[in-house]
Simulated scan of single mutants.
Amino acid sequence: MFTPLVVASMTLATSIHGTADKRPFSHLLRDITYVLAAATGVVGTAFHVYNVGKKDGGFSWQNVFYGAPLGAPMAILLAGLLGFCSERVRESTPGTRPEIFALPAGRTIAAVAGAGLLGTTGEAGLLHFRGAFHNPFMMLPVTLPPLGAAMLFSAAARGPGRRHRSTHRFMRVLAAMGFAGVGFHAYGVSRNMGGWRNWSQNILNGPPLPAPPSFAGLALAALAALELKGDHPDA
């Protein structure tokens, strides 16, 4: 269980290194870290599925609600996948179309971000359903991201020469929603007995603070993909 903590920290440090590195070349150690993150996400998902399935009653609503979160390890997978894609864009020859395994990079990353939004929506929907949607704002993470995913799939499917301005604006809305969600979850923690004075207990039992930024991260990756399509119309 220490593995995702170590790998996530390595992936974050690697991403910071990649952002600061101005050289137009990929980096072997960064690639290895991103592949390790993706593998950790896949293996972690298998462990979480096993954890839920081995409980009394198997895949019942009770166990899915309160067992290991099924979608959480996929966040590390997406981080590794998007990081690996960024390295492929970095190593593209100037003046040529950026590609990821011979696929246009902009459209490929847009499709990956759209799929990630759908998966993250499923996890949010499950946990917000557990919370009975007691706050109307809890509907936003299960309604807006699927629309954003549909827009990204449309952008990925369409040919060159399109700017996708409405999709740009909508991704900014999703990014803002992700950051605002941290505030809502912090408020949810404060509503538990003892509030933030009992933070060591309530952070574990309250709404997860790191969850909403997943939407912001995917929206920012989508914006990068759309900018890539704008700079290279055939990407």
Rank of each mutant, 00 (worst) to 15 (best):
F2G: 09
P4K: 00
L5E: 07
L5S: 02
V6D: 00
V7D: 04
A8P: 01
A8H: 05
S9Q: 08
T11L: 13
L12A: 14
H17I: 09
H17M: 10
G18W: 11
T19W: 15
D21W: 05
D21H: 10
D21A: 09
K22Q: 09
K22V: 10
S26M: 12
L28H: 14
L29P: 02
L29R: 11
R30Q: 14
R30A: 14
I32G: 02
Y34A: 07
L36Y: 01
A37C: 08
A38N: 00
A38S: 10
A39Q: 00
A39F: 00
T40F: 00
V43Q: 01
A46H: 03
A46E: 01
H48R: 06
V49F: 05
V52K: 00
G53N: 08
G53C: 03
K55E: 15
G57H: 04
F59V: 07
Q62N: 14
Q62V: 10
Q62S: 15
V64M: 11
V64L: 14
Y66L: 13
G67L: 02
G71E: 04
P73M: 07
M74D: 05
A75H: 12
I76F: 04
L77N: 00
L77G: 06
F84Y: 15
R88S: 13
V89Q: 12
R90Q: 14
S92V: 06
P94H: 10
G95P: 07
T96Y: 11
R97A: 11
E99Q: 13
I100L: 10
F101K: 11
F101S: 13
F101I: 11
R107W: 03
I109P: 02
A111G: 05
V112K: 08
A113Q: 06
G116F: 10
T120D: 04
G122P: 03
E123G: 11
A124K: 02
L126R: 09
L127F: 14
H128E: 15
H128T: 10
F129D: 08
F129H: 07
A132R: 13
T143R: 06
T143E: 07
L144D: 03
P145L: 05
L147Q: 06
A150N: 01
A150K: 01
L152T: 06
F153I: 01
S154R: 15
A155G: 08
R158Q: 15
R158G: 07
G159Y: 04
R163F: 15
T167W: 13
T167R: 03
R169Y: 15
A175N: 10
A175Q: 06
A176R: 01
M177F: 08
M177Y: 02
G178M: 02
G178F: 04
F179C: 09
A180K: 03
G181E: 05
G181H: 03
G183N: 06
G183T: 09
F184H: 08
H185D: 02
A186G: 02
Y187D: 03
Y187C: 01
Y187H: 11
V189T: 02
W196C: 09
N198F: 10
N198A: 14
S200V: 10
I203Y: 08
L204I: 12
N205S: 15
P208T: 05
L209P: 06
L209C: 07
P213K: 12
P213A: 09
F215K: 11
L220E: 07
L220T: 12
A225M: 06
A225N: 05
L226G: 04
P233D: 04
A235V: 00
A235F: 01
